[in-house]
Simulated assay, not measured.
Amino acid sequence: MHTPADVPMFPLRIHDLHWHAGGRAVLDGFSLELGGEGITILLGPNGAGKSVFLRSVCGLLQPDAGHFDWGGGPRPEFGVTMVFQQPKMLRDSVQANVELALRPLRVAAGERRARAQAVLERVGLAHRAGDSARGLSGGERQRLALARAWITRPRLLLLDEPTASLDPSSVDAIERIVREIRTEGTRILMTTHNLGQAMRLADDVVFIDAGRVCEHAPVQRFFARPASTAARLYIQGELPWRMAF
Score class of each variant (00 low, 15 high):
residue 128 R to W: 10
residue 54 L to T: 04
residue 93 S to R: 11
residue 98 V to E: 03
residue 83 V to W: 00
residue 232 R to I: 04
residue 25 A to G: 11
residue 205 V to W: 03
residue 100 L to Q: 09
residue 88 K to C: 03
residue 189 L to N: 09
residue 200 R to D: 04
residue 121 E to F: 01
residue 107 V to M: 09
residue 191 T to V: 15
residue 142 Q to E: 11
residue 70 W to A: 06
residue 70 W to P: 09
residue 223 F to W: 02
residue 52 V to Q: 07
residue 54 L to N: 03
residue 92 D to H: 10
residue 203 D to G: 11
residue 29 G to C: 02
residue 32 L to D: 08
residue 205 V to H: 04
residue 54 L to F: 02
residue 201 L to E: 14
residue 143 R to H: 10
residue 162 P to Q: 15
residue 68 F to T: 07
residue 74 P to Q: 13
residue 118 A to P: 01
residue 161 E to S: 08
residue 57 V to G: 02
residue 223 F to Y: 02
residue 3 T to Y: 00
residue 157 L to I: 05
residue 188 I to D: 08
residue 218 P to G: 10
residue 215 E to N: 05
residue 74 P to K: 12
residue 73 G to T: 14
residue 105 L to S: 00
residue 147 A to W: 04
residue 33 E to T: 12
residue 13 R to L: 02
residue 109 A to G: 08
residue 202 A to M: 01
residue 140 E to V: 12
residue 75 R to A: 12
residue 134 R to L: 13
residue 88 K to S: 11
residue 5 A to H: 13
residue 12 L to A: 05
residue 34 L to I: 15
residue 212 R to D: 01
residue 233 L to Y: 10
residue 20 H to E: 13
residue 244 A to I: 07
residue 242 R to G: 15
residue 130 G to M: 00
residue 131 D to P: 03
residue 239 L to Y: 01
residue 70 W to N: 08
residue 117 Q to M: 12
residue 168 P to D: 00
residue 214 C to E: 04
residue 202 A to S: 00
residue 124 G to C: 12
residue 34 L to D: 14
residue 62 Q to A: 06
residue 100 L to I: 04
residue 11 P to C: 07
residue 124 G to N: 13
residue 237 G to K: 14
residue 245 F to N: 10
residue 167 D to N: 05
residue 61 L to I: 09
residue 115 R to C: 07
residue 136 L to R: 11
residue 97 N to W: 06
residue 119 V to E: 03
residue 238 E to G: 10
residue 81 T to G: 00
residue 33 E to M: 01
residue 158 L to N: 13
residue 184 E to A: 15
residue 13 R to P: 01
residue 184 E to S: 15
residue 144 L to A: 11
residue 181 I to Q: 05
residue 87 P to A: 00
residue 95 Q to S: 04
residue 34 L to Y: 12
residue 243 M to R: 14
residue 96 A to R: 15
residue 73 G to S: 14
residue 42 L to R: 05
residue 51 S to T: 12
residue 171 V to L: 09
residue 90 L to F: 14
residue 32 L to P: 08
residue 239 L to A: 00
residue 72 G to Y: 12
residue 47 G to Q: 12
residue 206 V to T: 11
residue 208 I to C: 01
residue 226 P to K: 06
residue 195 L to Q: 08
residue 43 L to G: 08
residue 192 T to R: 03
residue 133 A to N: 10
residue 201 L to M: 14
residue 230 A to C: 12
residue 9 M to N: 07
residue 17 L to P: 10
residue 135 G to Y: 11
residue 225 R to E: 13
residue 24 R to Q: 01
residue 20 H to T: 14
residue 95 Q to N: 06
